[in-house]
């Protein structure tokens, strides 16, 4: 029987090859997910450390500012405050350590982001689980 060149060059792979390829890709997915999980855990730890630093900084800035003194007037000078509530609010606002508050909120947001991503991807590091992006 004559064969064309195309017939001759066509080769049938073993039936198991498809399953082997799919299994190999599944393994790669789990490896990729584990690497990603590792990066997220590192990010979560780093962001937690950053958050602690931000809390300490904010605490220091608050104690060094006049904000606690103004705030304590609410308890000691209630009547005067009622008469001069606008001036009191301005003074309270001006004394706020805004930079440390911004840093605190930013660090808190970053930490929440990493914790959320880490928890979401925890399942994907197990075999036969799909990666959650």
């Amino acid at each position: 029987m004559k064969h064309t060149l195309s017939d001759n060059l066509s080769v049938t792979p073993r039936e198991s090859l498809y399953a082997t390829i799919v299994a190999r890709i599944d393994m790669e997915k789990v490896r990729h997910a584990r690497r990603q999980f590792g990066r997220l855990v590192s990010g979560a730890i780093a962001s937690f450390v950053l958050f602690i630093g931000a809390v300490q900084y904010a605490t220091l800035q608050f104690t060094q500012s006049e904000f606690p003194q103004y705030l304590s007037l609410i308890l000691s000078e209630k009547t005067d405050l009622f008469n001069y509530w606008r001036e009191f609010l301005y003074a309270l606002t001006e004394s706020l350590p805004l930079l440390s508050i911004t840093i605190f909120l930013g660090a808190f947001g970053v930490m929440l982001f990493f914790i959320q991503k880490t928890l979401k991807n925890f399942g994907s590091v197990l075999p036969h689980a799909t990666l959650i992006s």
């Binding site: 792979p13 090859l17 082997t20 190999r24 890709i25």
Partner: peptide, 10 residues
Amino acid sequence: AEDITQDTFV
């Protein structure tokens, strides 16, 4: 050929 085919699709 099988090994290379696997690597290719990965």
